[in-house]
Nucleic acid binder design. Sequence first.
DNA 1: TCCAATTAGTTTTCAATCTGAACTATATGG
DNA 2: CCATATAGTTCAGATTGAAAACTAATTGGA
Lengths: 419, 419
Amino acid sequence: MVNGSQQQFFKSAGSPTPVNESAAPGRVGDVRRRNLSLVLDSIARTGDAKPSRAQLAAGTGLTKAAVSSLVADLVESGLVSEVGLYRDGERGRPGQGLELSSRRGVVGMEINVDYLAVGLVDLGGNLRFHSTVESRNRGMAPDEVMEGLRVLVAEAVAAAGADNVAILGGGLAVPGLVDERRNIVVSAPNLHWENEHLDPGSLLEGAPLGVRLSNEANSAALGELWYGNGPADFLYVSGEVGVGGGVIIGSDLYLGPGGSAGELGHIVVHPEGPVCSCGGAGCLETFAGQEAIFDAADIPEGSLSERIEQLLAALAAQEPNALKAVHDAGRYLGVALASSARLMDIDAIVLGGHFALLAEWLRPALLASLERYAPGLLEPKNLTVSGLEHSGTLLGAAGQVIRSVIESPFEFLLASKLA
Amino acid sequence: MVNGSQQQFFKSAGSPTPVNESAAPGRVGDVRRRNLSLVLDSIARTGDAKPSRAQLAAGTGLTKAAVSSLVADLVESGLVSEVGLYRDGERGRPGQGLELSSRRGVVGMEINVDYLAVGLVDLGGNLRFHSTVESRNRGMAPDEVMEGLRVLVAEAVAAAGADNVAILGGGLAVPGLVDERRNIVVSAPNLHWENEHLDPGSLLEGAPLGVRLSNEANSAALGELWYGNGPADFLYVSGEVGVGGGVIIGSDLYLGPGGSAGELGHIVVHPEGPVCSCGGAGCLETFAGQEAIFDAADIPEGSLSERIEQLLAALAAQEPNALKAVHDAGRYLGVALASSARLMDIDAIVLGGHFALLAEWLRPALLASLERYAPGLLEPKNLTVSGLEHSGTLLGAAGQVIRSVIESPFEFLLASKLA
DNA sequence: TCCAATTAGTTTTCAATCTGAACTATATGG
DNA sequence: CCATATAGTTCAGATTGAAAACTAATTGGA
């Protein structure tokens, strides 16, 4: 696209500052990119209803002619399938039902502190295969962990083959800050990883869309948005060893300019609070992280699942230290959420991780705290608990790849035409 | 756009859930909308360099033919003017310099607690006229305040007439939460306004783009972004009677789903802090608002400008209470900013209002606090003071209307063709 | 049984828009 | 005064969706 006039422009010595670089110009073809995405998104949203071309035309505002042409491309690429005639008992020619192909899938993968998990998600969002193994990954070398994951991935690939599902790509979620573009785990304190370069693509050789690295809390938030019961705007609170968060605004993940937004764990909730592992002080994590809660509740060292069991038992037995530990965690979580929700103008919260498990005991203290520090901001019904349990992160990790296809089908069509 | 097939669609009783409503479809004409904006934006960004069509073609990636056609429309509408031949001493035909017309302007207006201000800003961002009057607006009825503003607006209109500048619209900033669409000041505690309906359009009868209501801190942040020294991502902190904020992300104002994001004043900085006027507790405003600082510094009641004078004098005289008051304000401001910057992943801060006036004394405490609560997050050079003084809010308020034209010139062209 | 009515989807014509190449316009410098 | 260089315009060609006419497939009633 560097043409003659541009070269001439830079040669011109006495010229003033060059025109600022700006966004790409609109081309006639962009219209088709947008409409392909629009139609594909409409099919995705309509989901089980399996819309016909005519219904899509009505829903999108495009003409039937345009929709037919767009759908033809999408069907040819394999992203959309016709699922037989659709009749509703009325007069007239029945429509051809359309759906996102269940013969195309994405592998969701998760590395966490105490386990590895893999799932196969088809374009329609169905979890067709799911496998989890316990694995003490804290302090393990990334290569070793990746080898363990490879075994699980092989199962998913086999399941896909047996089901005749073509794998388009994968999403890999890790509990830490990632540089998605360069496949680097910048910092995952709970794994003791720092600036580790991964090669997620090697987990799924040959998948046209590759494997996308993402943060665990962000993926869980997106899973909640797409496949759970998250509204268009909410804060997802991930209680793992650390306290993480995902910010969903306008049905979109808010990542911030540098990609590390949503760090709920390091909101300052008490200016005279203890020093935090991040070097700061008074962070939420020092009051509501797993270690802080177990310590305050006098739960002895052990594996995570054991300690959670013990804590729940202690709570059920009304042991004062356990009750106080969870109450305090809820109170400080309320401080952080009151500040965050006000700053970002968000009025819904979804709890995940250990906060979901402790919700019964945590919720009253958290609601009271929210009411004290930000009265009227949040209706109690907008404080919910994740409904996806352990598959939320997987679904979100895979979903990001699926959404990227839905948002840019044109690029996918091009690639599949070349191949 | 409701055609036959849509009606049929809704009649069809047995049909499944209708296709979800989605974004508008792309039309061929959208390409021109986008490119008109692209070219106009390029001219705006290039600013004083007054680019030629050929330079715009190189800068935008469009062909010369397309740029010529687009520029013709923009010139015809009056948004862009040709400013004579541009020669740079090189060979070849000289280009026609282009600039945003200085014969089109927008009136920026500000209602604040202690003053009213009006300015005339041309499309190129030049403040061509500026007038401020002291006015004790706290507790005054909106109608009365609007009458006072009307006098100032008449001056600006007269100045525009004398200068042969056509007024396209206006922007009115107020120190409170606004509902821009319905022209309601939802809450401006420092004016004692609550759900007051204003009629900003009546301030500039006949202006084709009307008058746009906005929040003072948000406008000041945008003023800093467009006409001051704000980077693409920063938090603007507005120290007025209350503590307000504006969040700029990706060179865009972040308003949040409900339009009230950036409420820095009500971040909780101490869970055992005093009750705040908002009903919460421990809010930043209770430590760093003007009242809190004046109280702690033992500055007696009086007019704002007098009290500020006295405080600055006390600081210059090293009076311990004054020093401590400002130090504490800086410390708690640091707590709030550490949390906010981490949550939203932002690494630059611009101080305005009384924080700008006190910067010399505030800055050390603020930097120390940021380093304590979020070590390494923010380089000291990224903590700056607003350079626009009292015109930032005006420029931002007017700038929002100017930006709306730059972002959607097609609509403006349509309107000006009809008239 | 067969045709009118109804709905789905395709084909055709048209207008909008950008690209690319050829062309015209206007300057500099030897 | 003309070669060269640069700015800007004109025009054919390609892509795309709108609009309308058309074909396809179904139901229900005569």
